[in-house]
Amino acid sequence: MKLLSQLDIGEKGIVKVVNGEGVVRRRLFDMGITPGAEIYLRKKAPLGDPIEITLRGYELTLRKAEASHVEMV
């Protein structure tokens, strides 16, 4: 099992499950991180966290803590 927070720069993957609860989870869904979505890890912030991902044709940033709710295929 690999988490979104564990992807390396330049790596891509498909979302399997989104865990977590409440606001964070809903926010992840609303931004398009749903099962089946393809995600590409574009870069990490200068201090290593948050991360920047490309999905559904746009750029999104989120912290590793939030990304660790997302399980990848």
Binding site: V23, V24, L28, M31, E52, E59, T61, L62, E66
Partner: peptide, 9 residues
Amino acid sequence: SPFIMELPT
């Protein structure tokens, strides 16, 4: 608070 933000072009 959670930090899930769009990075606009």
